[in-house]
Amino acid sequence: MNDALRRAGSRLAMGVWLLGIWLLLWGRVDALTVIGGGIAVAAAYAASRLPAVPLVRRIRPLRVVEAVLEFSWDLLASSVVIGWHALYRPGHVRGAIIDVEMRSRSDLILLAVTNSISLRPGTILIDLDAERTVLRIHAVPVRGPQEADSMRDGVVRTEERLMRAFVTWEDAPPKEDR
């Protein structure tokens, strides 16, 4: 699929999404509401130059379930760790700023990774370099280089899970299409 066709499909998908939101806000579906929504969507695109939504080349449902389960486990485990540190000697908890190099060049995967680490207790994204190759995160608790490496490895594993679940055009070679 060429780049222009992908971009057009992406914009169409975003337009359908916005039209769906418009219809939900109005609470009814009739010709006038649909036509008005179409005009509103076209005006929104013209006024704001909305970005193209990244498209997924392939979704692997079992890998998606695996990624959700592993994220849920990470969420539970980090909540317990942060809760324990908040109750036991809260003044002695140390954090660190950690740089994590990303393999994926997909905006969708990058967005999912940054949301995932920001949703977990104890980690938050503080910077994303202009080249989109390095995430800078603040992590708690980190008492030394080994725990910093463990946090970094956790972010890399999250990216790998998401890359296995959602095959994007930026990360998969075109010949892999089956």
Score class of each variant (00 low, 15 high):
151 M>R: 15
173 P>Q: 13
64 V>Y: 04
90 P>I: 08
144 G>W: 02
129 D>G: 08
169 W>R: 07
65 V>I: 13
47 A>I: 15
49 R>T: 04
45 Y>M: 00
43 A>P: 00
41 V>M: 02
68 V>N: 09
141 P>A: 13
121 P>M: 11
131 E>K: 15
24 L>T: 06
172 A>P: 04
1 M>R: 02
4 A>E: 02
24 L>P: 04
170 E>H: 09
13 A>F: 05
12 L>T: 00
65 V>F: 15
14 M>L: 08
55 L>Q: 06
141 P>W: 13
25 L>N: 03
66 E>L: 11
38 G>M: 09
4 A>Y: 02
33 T>L: 10
158 T>F: 15
105 R>K: 06
31 A>Q: 15
95 G>H: 01
62 L>C: 15
165 A>K: 01
50 L>R: 00
58 R>K: 10
167 V>F: 01
73 W>E: 04
132 R>E: 06
17 W>Y: 12
57 R>Q: 13
137 I>W: 08
74 D>M: 10
2 N>L: 08
151 M>G: 12
148 A>W: 03
61 P>G: 06
38 G>S: 10
33 T>E: 10
32 L>D: 11
13 A>P: 03
159 E>P: 12
112 A>M: 15
143 R>G: 08
139 A>K: 07
66 E>V: 09
111 L>D: 09
141 P>I: 14
146 Q>Y: 13
13 A>Q: 05
52 A>E: 00
125 L>Y: 06
34 V>R: 10
52 A>G: 03
1 M>W: 03
134 V>C: 07
166 F>V: 04
161 R>N: 03
78 S>G: 05
69 L>K: 08
177 D>M: 10
125 L>V: 09
90 P>M: 07
46 A>R: 06
176 E>Q: 13
173 P>D: 15
113 V>I: 05
175 K>L: 14
138 H>S: 09
169 W>H: 12
96 A>V: 08
37 G>Y: 07
112 A>K: 13
165 A>Q: 04
98 I>S: 04
158 T>Q: 15
99 D>A: 15
123 T>R: 07
174 P>D: 01
60 R>T: 11
135 L>D: 03
145 P>E: 14
117 I>Y: 13
73 W>K: 05
102 M>L: 08
92 H>N: 06
45 Y>T: 00
147 E>D: 14
94 R>H: 13
121 P>W: 11
84 W>I: 04
155 V>Q: 11
120 R>W: 12
92 H>W: 04
168 T>P: 02
113 V>E: 01
85 H>P: 02
17 W>R: 14
24 L>A: 08
25 L>P: 00
43 A>Y: 01
158 T>C: 14
162 L>R: 05
149 D>P: 15
119 L>E: 07
76 L>M: 15
115 N>W: 01
98 I>H: 05
25 L>C: 00
1 M>Y: 03
153 D>T: 14
130 A>R: 09
152 R>F: 14
162 L>H: 04
153 D>P: 12
97 I>H: 05
30 D>I: 09
104 S>F: 00
107 D>E: 10
153 D>G: 13
126 I>G: 12
166 F>M: 01
159 E>F: 12
90 P>V: 08
30 D>L: 09
64 V>S: 06
110 L>V: 06
77 A>V: 14
18 L>I: 05
1 M>E: 03
131 E>N: 13
8 A>M: 02
40 A>L: 10
173 P>T: 15
4 A>I: 00
16 V>Q: 03
169 W>Q: 07
115 N>Q: 00
130 A>V: 08
7 R>W: 06
66 E>G: 08
24 L>Y: 03
103 R>T: 14
